Amino acid sequence: MDDEAKHKHNVTLKRKKLVIDEQIALAQENRGVLVLITGDGKGKTTSAFGTAFRALGHGMRVGIIQFIKGTQATGEVIYLTQQHPQLAYHAMATGFTWDTRDWDKDKTAAEETWVYARRMLTDPEIQLVVLDELTYMLTYEYLSMADVIQAMRQRPTRQNVIVTGRDAKPELIAIADTVSEIAAVKHAFKDGVKAQPGMDF
């Protein structure tokens, strides 16, 4: 990079810093946020669990509900439940819907699991709640969208929530504070590479 290019680069970064500093100064509201991580790409649950690790590192209480998953021990769940007693964890543990193929059974399991989720969403001591794969429960109509939205809106003011899963409904996107969509650009599984412990579960 020549001197002129370096100068332009520094000017660009200076302008960027001014914009960021202004945004930081304007962000004065202090409340919990609802984060939605959706899309067809890999990494939604991984991202949510990464934030859970971050919260636990700050000594916060964390609650995690896993819809759909739960029949296979994953590295993150094994570690968290063994090492962090301040973590509240519950899994629906019916496996993937294409394995069960029983709408009534899955709906009952989802409703029973939602009881645990609602309990977390009313507990002011839990500062982060992760609702992993919740979007599927709404897509398949196992849970009522109205009930879910009401629970989100009535949760403790300082409580943060992360929802993951594909095909997020517009109603869920509308009430979220932050929405990230992970795109599926490439995936090793489609090239015949087996899922690996430590990388995929």
Rank of each mutant, 00 (worst) to 15 (best):
L26D: 13
A117I: 08
D2Y: 06
V148N: 02
T12G: 10
T135E: 05
K14V: 13
R101S: 03
I173D: 00
D167S: 10
M1S: 14
A184K: 14
V19G: 03
D123E: 07
G43Y: 09
T100I: 15
F53M: 12
T74C: 05
E111Y: 04
P85K: 13
G41H: 01
I64L: 08
K17S: 09
M120T: 05
K6R: 15
T46A: 14
H187N: 12
G39A: 09
D177M: 04
V11Q: 15
D106F: 00
T122F: 08
S47L: 09
M137T: 03
I37Q: 07
A73R: 13
D99C: 04
S47V: 04
A151R: 00
D104S: 11
T164V: 02
K69Y: 04
K169W: 02
L18N: 11
D132A: 01
A48S: 09
T100A: 10
R101I: 08
V130I: 13
L34G: 01
T97Y: 14
K169P: 02
M137Q: 14
K190I: 08
N10V: 09
L131P: 07
N30M: 10
S47Y: 11
D123K: 00
N160A: 06
Q196S: 03
L121E: 05
E29S: 13
V185F: 07
A48W: 07
A93E: 09
N160L: 00
W98P: 00
E125F: 04
K186I: 03
T139D: 14
E111A: 13
K17H: 09
G50S: 01
T46S: 15
R119Y: 04
T51S: 05
K186Q: 00
I182Y: 10
D167G: 02
D40I: 01
E171I: 01
E181G: 04
D191W: 00
L128H: 02
T74I: 05
G198F: 06
L56S: 02
V11A: 11
L18A: 13
G75P: 07
V35Y: 09
R153S: 11
G95R: 10
T135D: 08
G32D: 02
Q154T: 15
Y116H: 15
G50R: 00
I182T: 12
I149R: 07
R166Q: 10
K190P: 00
A188N: 07
I175F: 01
